[in-house]
Design a protein around this nucleic acid. Structure first.
Lengths: 135, 135
DNA sequence: ATAAAAATGATAATCATTATTATTTTTATA
DNA sequence: TATAAAAATAATAATGATTATCATTTTTAT
């Protein structure tokens, strides 16, 4: 509740470009890369620049509004609320699937984070996805 | 014991370049990047090519002999035995510090991995390191 | 010994990301 | 409301890590 108010106050100060970048990430369920975000933004803001997308991604990450999905290979992939879920990543094609933390795992992870005074964590499991296995 | 025999059998078949790359990673305690590995290899093999380093890093990763430290920012950083420890990464400068899994955490993680038939996992905690905080 | 396969060195190409710069937009203040 | 300073933007050039290419050398299998 408090968090949501904070978000809205801050978002009110966002420029239209910055808000567009953030909204795209929030709406897309595929952990988009910068160029995917760029293409999505262009649907509503046709002349937005790719540099603007990168600049705002950096800014939003700095502000803690978004994070990167780590270890997916090639390009950087962006996501919101990284603390609430982890990922299963295909070690062949880089496909990313969300996975909810089993409660026991989340409790232990949160305990380690807080016990050592660390700010956050990111966990990825790996396997070879069904599609890549049949090739 | 069994593992060590397997390793040695395989290593006997490695070319001198490939072996050099692997040994450098095993000996360095700093999670080296490709160019650090390249510079280290040049001390014993002065005319080794950077392309050879990259080629062998890719090969060794494919063979499961080494892995990458994920989410450290800029360059790829390499490491061996990723399953046995996790990392604390500075979110400002990318410094990587090894961290042993608390036994309870390792048990839960292994349980999730095996229970879901996944091959491995990688966990990173983040904070701002002492040096970056005092700036 | 020798032909096929694999590895290498040198270097060019790629391509995601960052830097630059001139211009436009926003903000703060008189 | 003007207006000067600050911030954001579009366009594009530059950067730099990684990958691809290719001619040559080394290894492997027969």
């Amino acid at each position: 509740m408090f968090f949501s108010v904070t978000m809205n106050m801050q978002m009110a100060n966002f420029s239209s470009r910055r808000q567009a970048v953030l909204e795209v990430i929030q709406k897309m369920r595929c952990h988009p890369s910068a160029d995917m975000i760029y293409e999505e933004c262009r649907k509503t803001i046709p002349n937005i620049s790719l540099a603007t997308v990168y600049r705002n991604l950096a800014y939003l990450e700095e502000q803690g509004e978004l994070g990167r999905v780590i270890g997916a290979g090639e390009k950087e992939r962006y996501d919101v609320e990284l603390d609430t879920h982890c990922h299963v990543i295909c070690d062949k094609c880089g496909r990313i699937v969300d996975m909810n933390y089993p409660q026991e795992l989340k409790d232990v992870l949160d305990g380690c984070r807080d016990g050592m005074g660390l700010s956050r964590y990111a966990l990825s499991f790996y396997n070879t996805c069904e599609e890549c296995r049949h090739k």
